[in-house]
Design a protein around this nucleic acid. Sequence first.
DNA 1: CGGAGGTTTGAGAGGCGTCAACCTCCGTGG
DNA 2: CCACGGAGGTTGACGCCTCTCAAACCTCCG
Lengths: 249, 249
Amino acid sequence: MLSAKFLLGRGRDALSPTEQRALEDAMSGVRTVKANQHLARRGEVVTQSTLLIDGLVSRYMDDREGQRQIVAIHVPGDFVDLHGFPLRRLDHDVATLTEVTIGSYDHQALLSITERFPHLGRMLWFSTLVDAAMHREWIFRLGRLDAEGRVAHFMSEMLTRMEFIGLTDEGRFAFPITQSELAEACGVTSVHVNRVLRTLRESGLMTFRNGVVDIADRAGLARLGEFAPDYLYGDHGRWRVEGNGSEIA
Amino acid sequence: MLSAKFLLGRGRDALSPTEQRALEDAMSGVRTVKANQHLARRGEVVTQSTLLIDGLVSRYMDDREGQRQIVAIHVPGDFVDLHGFPLRRLDHDVATLTEVTIGSYDHQALLSITERFPHLGRMLWFSTLVDAAMHREWIFRLGRLDAEGRVAHFMSEMLTRMEFIGLTDEGRFAFPITQSELAEACGVTSVHVNRVLRTLRESGLMTFRNGVVDIADRAGLARLGEFAPDYLYGDHGRWRVEGNGSEIA
DNA sequence: CGGAGGTTTGAGAGGCGTCAACCTCCGTGG
DNA sequence: CCACGGAGGTTGACGCCTCTCAAACCTCCG
């Protein structure tokens, strides 16, 4: 199942086997793309959406001088541009951070899904809204935390999301991006992100070397980054809110 | 029509009269709320969503010391927490900035809409994704612009959104928030936002006094804030992308 | 072995935060 | 009618976090 990681660890009810199969069948093609390639450009009208099966993808916008702001980083199981289905054109660029495997969904196929499987359609909607919740938390991170807090918050989020899809090993996960890209996500310069990483290393919270993140003191890192995972809408942990009988989605 | 401003100026196809009526009929109650009142809290399970009919509403999160980051400001016609329908609980607080008039929608009624009026359902989805697009632009604003650019970008966005719903008069619009609240949206201190406003005033770009924004040099302000309105998905202007025959939403 | 991309460290500058004082406006009550 | 208090706005002094500029180093790979 190439789409097996979609919403894995998320939401209150997983997809039913029927829905999982419908999603898998709707995929029109699978391909691999090398690192640092564009998948879509701002302003482009899109007729397909992309499910990330393996690798990392970024969404970003550049300022007038070409300075880049990454607005989202996607991990396997994420629909990187599902919002292009209702929006029809993109307001940002999309590019691979690593070599990736992606699956394509024609918007016609998605339309058909929403009509034949309303609940699955709402889960697609749900997944775009979890992206929006992450956007909000990124706004908070940039507006209220200093450089150290931003990196701590970012890495706490990535750890949690990697755990959802089973890609961690005792607080350690492969994360093959450069310090410059980390800086572009956190709104600081790469020079400064380097200094922050040294501080985090020396304080025993975490290391980031050779594309591997190793979080030694998860609670300490979360405290520093004021990180609370509720906004990721995972189905583990104390943030879980039980259903009240009036199930909607 | 209390819901008349929903998606006004947005999207490629307006709501049909039937859809407009369905939306109006689904509203379960209208009430007014005074300024600076909570409408919802982070973590809360919600069973209704709120359409803002008149006034201003903010969504925000506080840091550990109580410093506030506003992540969204809503104007009439906005569904302030429609994302609560698929998400079921909120990851942020919601509060009124001014006295407001709001309409309530039971999630059961929204569920019924999505099943009886699939296109209207997709337009609801669409509206939550325009919110997400604004979130992305706010990330860019905080990550890549200096204080002056942030205020310029913010005000450019507000002008454009106010124009969509017909609440401007020659670049002037009522915007009764405090400088502190503006600062909380732009990720700077109120002291510094005050200095920025003075600079903008002295350079002849705009003024903000007594709850009224007056933008004298719209192009200059947009340049300073690196503002391009495409992410608001309005149906005016050069950013409009015409349909290509494969209409989805 | 040479070059490119990425990482690391230092020195100096500046934008913005912090702290603090003072002002205006306005509703309230003596 | 004026005193009073609180909210919001304005301005100055000072310091620090982060940027900029610069250079060295490391590693991978053609």
